[in-house]
């Protein structure tokens, strides 16, 4: 543990300032995450609506007092 932080300080190859830093890798990772979320969201449609009867949507008439 002792040298953990110091060792990392010597590991630094160069310093990147605020203006020159462009977090493109982060944008890619977040993009992949959103893609996964969208795919899982589509999958959810099959789990919820095709596997079972609709719940809140089907109760619309009851909510507004028409049925």
């Amino acid at each position: 543990m002792a040298s953990a932080t110091e060792q990392r300080e010597t590991d630094q190859v160069h310093e990147i300032g605020h203006e020159e830093y462009d977090p493109i890798g982060t944008a890619i990772l977040i993009g992949i995450y959103f893609l996964i979320l969208v795919l899982l969201w589509l999958f959810m449609y099959f789990v919820e609506f095709l596997g079972n009867g609709p719940t809140v949507v089907g109760a619309l008439l009851t909510v507004v007092g028409l049925a």
């Binding site: 630094q12 160069h14 310093e15 990147i16 830093y21 977090p23 982060t26 990772l29």
Partner: peptide
Amino acid sequence: VASMEHGARQR
């Protein structure tokens, strides 16, 4: 993640 990437690029 952007902060981690900053560290990784500095390394």
